[in-house]
Nucleic acid binder design. Sequence first.
DNA 1: GTCCCTACTT
Length: 574
Amino acid sequence: MFPATLCSVQLPPSFPKLTQQHKNFQTDSLTTHLVSNFNCPFELKQVHAHFIKTKTPLSTLTLSRVAMVCSSSPAFDYAHKMFRHVDNQEIVLWNSCLRSFAEGNSPIEAFRLLRRIRLVDLFPDTFTCSFAIKACSKLLALAEGRVIHALVEKLGFKSDLFLLNTIVHMYASCGAMEDACCLFTRMVERDVVTWNIMITQFTKLGDMGTARDLFDEMPMRSVRSWTAMIAGYVQCGKPKEATRLFIEMEEAGVEPNEVFHEMEERSVVSWSAMIGGLAIHGQAEEALRLFKRMSKIGIRPNGVTIIGLLLACSHMGLIDEGRKYFASMTKDYGIIPQIEHYGCMVDLLSRTGLLEEAHEFIKNMPIKPNSVVWGALLGGCKVHKNVKLGEEAIKHLQELDPLNDGYYVVLSNIYAEAGRWEDAARVRRLMRERGVKKTPGWSTMAVNGVVHEFVAGDGSHPNAQEIYEKWEELLHKLKAKGYVPNTSVVLLDMDENEKENVLYRHSEKLAVVFGLISTSPGTPLRIMKNLRVCEDCHAALKLISEISGRQIVLRDRNRFHSFMNGICSCKDYW
DNA sequence: GTCCCTACTT
């Protein structure tokens, strides 16, 4: 809130006017101080008064900073009246505020500012609308987006291509694909960005068919078009198609329709997407090979490229390579490691079982470790059964991310595996006390364009009876192949029979069985899971791929698993 | 001064 003085002051009818006529003006030290320290809206009037008194030209103040500081009401009104006299491009100042809000952490503030702009006699331009729509995209505020779209039409900006692209993107990112498509179809003029937006959205929906049709149809392609398609194939578990397209992109070269420097910038993204994609598909060697090729043709990696490399090493346990890349990022490429890089390194060390080293690494990091970093250590403690360090990690996680159920579950699991049932129960009690609930596991699978959802233990699927019957049949075959249910992954304190039943109702098993009975033989099955696949399901899926002769692609929270002929692409390291 | 792509852990 503002102090009453600022709120209640009535501006004089003739608002003090300052122009830029003082050419040889020398600022005194107080003015310099006021200018360089202006960061409080309460002070605007005082500063303004001082400027009038000392005949300081208002342009001495950085007006964009004033706008930023005073963008909230009621300082807004005062700043607006002040700007009116000094800057005939006042809207630009507010636009840059809108932009900061829309792109930063306060898109709601962008809406408030837009309302203030509309309330005074200021005319929004295409930029104003563009930033306001961007705020809608960020907040997934479809209703507000529609209002601003209407405003765009009303103000007569409806043929502005930049603006229309922003609106198409807003509709698409808010999930209103019909509106996005409708606008796309109606647009008289489209550029490569328009097409890229549509392609990207379809790839995000997993509809690679439509995305590909658009990609083939578009009159010209930019690096981003290729990147969107490649990333799309990676995300939906088709690394082969991604690689094929990547090679095609290299062979085709890219049309010079973006400034050269920018093109080079962008192509780092394609390479990084491809490297990261190969990494989460467990093709570490391929990812590292690609990186060598990229370096050879002179494309410099950025921070994201390095994350891809570290991920690749992490998913395959390539400890020495990981260390090497982490060291070289600063030494050879001048990239300062961010928290994400530290997260990858802790993950790499922890997974490999170098838990003490990982702990030391965390203690010596120059930036404050976040929950991801401690979570990575905790994950390693689970795999390598280290109760002591697990407890250390959870101590920090309770402070950093107390409501995240995943960490408690892992710790409880660590205790359970060590046979410390009382401690495991204590963790579960703690969760109850704090109101933290375990996220139920669910899997989804699309069959003939319909997305089927399976929740662990759930019997609500229309084909539940059939699924369970098929599972019983499959179970015999699995056991004949040597499958032994791994009940240790069931955290609940119950007898072995009950545990087995819980295990047999895991969502990914239900999904796979449903896939087997509802698709023709040989069809690959694609499943998404919200959590990480459990060890038992992983073992079962390997065998099912062998028995059924099907490829099963499972995208879990962490990475892709591609099961084929009894083997998983993660090589059981995950 | 504007629009679209890549990214850590559980």
